[in-house]
Computed example of a mutant assay.
Amino acid sequence: MNEHYLDTEFQRADELIAKDLIEESKSVLNSILEEDPNYGKAHNHLGWIAKVKENDPVTAENHYKHALASVPDYGATYLNYAYLLSEQKRYYDLEQILQKAENVADVSKNSLAREWAYMYEDTKQYEKAIEKYKEYALTLYDSPLLEKAKEAILRCRQKLEILNL
């Protein structure tokens, strides 16, 4: 099959996910991988489905690893994998993924800053967390999200204050 066909099928799978037609989307994504086992975007989407819809982090991680190996410039995979690693509190692996993501043009920079901030806060590196929350906040245009970022900065400052009591 040609690449244009696979790209069209991938778009269809993406639209099925948007409509919450998960089984149909999985079928299309698996068909894509039968044609081209290295179609990384399909691996990313199957990873997302495994994690978010099926609560299967092992399958999700395998798909994310395939996706990163196949299309290292596809930004969505880095963030999806980061969410999984963050949830599992696997900070060493998370830091490695976030560092790699820094050099990928397609990665959402505000989401990346937010993920760094979460990791730093979780690992009690509050000064670094504050800087990343600020970086994140300055990219926002949505007032509720901006308020949440401000709250996160204040929360980290309070934690620092408690540490220094």
Rank of each mutant, 00 (worst) to 15 (best):
V107D: 00
Y81H: 14
D93A: 13
E151C: 01
K132H: 08
I97T: 00
K19T: 14
T77Y: 02
E115Q: 09
L21H: 14
Y64M: 06
K148C: 01
Q88R: 13
L146V: 01
E9I: 01
M119I: 03
L29F: 04
T139D: 06
N110W: 03
V28Y: 02
D56F: 05
V104T: 11
A76C: 06
Q125K: 15
I32Q: 02
N80S: 14
S86A: 12
E115R: 14
H63N: 14
V104E: 09
I17V: 15
K148I: 00
K134V: 05
V28I: 14
P57Y: 14
E9Q: 13
A67P: 10
D106L: 10
A137Q: 12
S111Q: 12
Q96P: 05
S108P: 05
Y133H: 10
Y118G: 01
T77Q: 02
L112Q: 02
N30S: 05
A50S: 15
K19E: 15
N80K: 11
E102N: 04
L46A: 08
K53N: 07
K132V: 00
F10G: 03
K51S: 02
Y136R: 09
L138A: 10
D36R: 05
L94S: 01
E23P: 03
E3D: 10
E34Y: 05
N2C: 08
